[in-house]
Design a protein around this nucleic acid. Sequence first.
DNA 1: CGAGGGTTTGAAGTGCATCAAATAGTGTGG
DNA 2: CCACACTATTTGATGCACTTCAAACCCTCG
Lengths: 238, 238
Amino acid sequence: MIENRLKQLGLFKNCSESFLQEISEASQIKKYDKGQVLFLNGDAASRFYIIISGWAKIFRETLDGSQAVVDIFSSGHMFGETSIFEEDIYPYSAEIVETGEVISLPLAHLKKEIEINNKFALEMLSAMARYRRHQDQEIEHRTLQNASQRIGCFLLRLTPQQDSTDIKINLPYDKMLVASRLGMQPETFSRALKKLAEKTGITINGATIEMKNLHQLSDYSCAACSSEFPCKDLQAAE
Amino acid sequence: MIENRLKQLGLFKNCSESFLQEISEASQIKKYDKGQVLFLNGDAASRFYIIISGWAKIFRETLDGSQAVVDIFSSGHMFGETSIFEEDIYPYSAEIVETGEVISLPLAHLKKEIEINNKFALEMLSAMARYRRHQDQEIEHRTLQNASQRIGCFLLRLTPQQDSTDIKINLPYDKMLVASRLGMQPETFSRALKKLAEKTGITINGATIEMKNLHQLSDYSCAACSSEFPCKDLQAAE
DNA sequence: CGAGGGTTTGAAGTGCATCAAATAGTGTGG
DNA sequence: CCACACTATTTGATGCACTTCAAACCCTCG
């Protein structure tokens, strides 16, 4: 049930029962398959989205077909909501990259609630500010880090805790997608990951990566970054 | 007088006289010389800033001294305000790059007003949303455009109107800074600008650039961008 | 006039992209 | 359960864009 899902999100913690009920009734939860497009850059925007499971990528595409992946979202994240304030068109395209469930909600309800519920407006502002920092960091990473360092940084942000040794993780989605998320070609990703393994002693086995010494990894990856390790992901889910 | 300056900004249009008076009294307007640092990444944040004249750059710096310029602001722009919501430390450093006047205002007052003045909170949200789009575009540009195209795009966004022919503009700050703003080295900027001139028929004379045919310039520059010309700057001043 | 930064130019190196092809992996229908 | 088709991933070879280092030039301002 949608209402319960929404209640689990920190974002709506200051919203009234009646608002949650109302917006839930006007919302839809739906399973989307890998490859489905939710909306395209320039489309008229009337709804925003919250991911329940699976992954979605946010991207922009040029006429000649090359695309820039701006971000990739998972469970708990919201997107398409910036269209409330400007122009009512989506500023990017969104596509499901791992099958899962997504709630679509009407922007009109969101807008109304922001206008009348001050605490909720603050919650939104806080989320926006957090995301801005995330983007600043993104710009920095793409400017200063080389391919291997960007991968290392990405891996570090996937680790649950920083203190333990011998961490084993799985890449959250396929390598092609990780590559585009980090702004590089798949071939470059493959080579850069291998180079990272040589330099930092991590072990790669398909999509599974074993990290015995996080400090060695962070020494290498964070050398070209203004943030210190542990550099927690600023765009943390609600 | 600070209060009058603030009244000229659209941002504060829904604020009460008493708030404007209060925050003005707690604010300072000061002339800063080129090279002065306003704050550093990681500093405790208690004030935010609004530029009256001159230019300021927002950047992040690694231990080894290389820096990523995140943005460069001019008259009417505000920065450092995102620290209200998180951690109370600045997420980037700020330095004056063209001598001018800057107002520094207490974050505490801003925070209080956001909490009690709903319309103002909305105005802030709107500004945040606009800036987020600006950053998305920035990430796209740095991913998809080559050096010459980034310069062309930068020039197009400096032009006052899109329809006229034979436009003459001056670069707003020195070429080294434009280069860093666009994420490239000064040498690369110099060469890429020359290449742009060959490809699009613009004329370069020191810091003055003459553009006889904007369409030729946009055809070349916007080929690797998802936005159509005219691609107005989303981070427009208040 | 001379010092010092900004800008340009040249030469060489590096990192990533691209193109091409081999290999591994995955899901499908037989 | 296997063979096939298709996609993801890796590897190799090559090219290009940008960087780096070095030096010259130019401009401005004391």
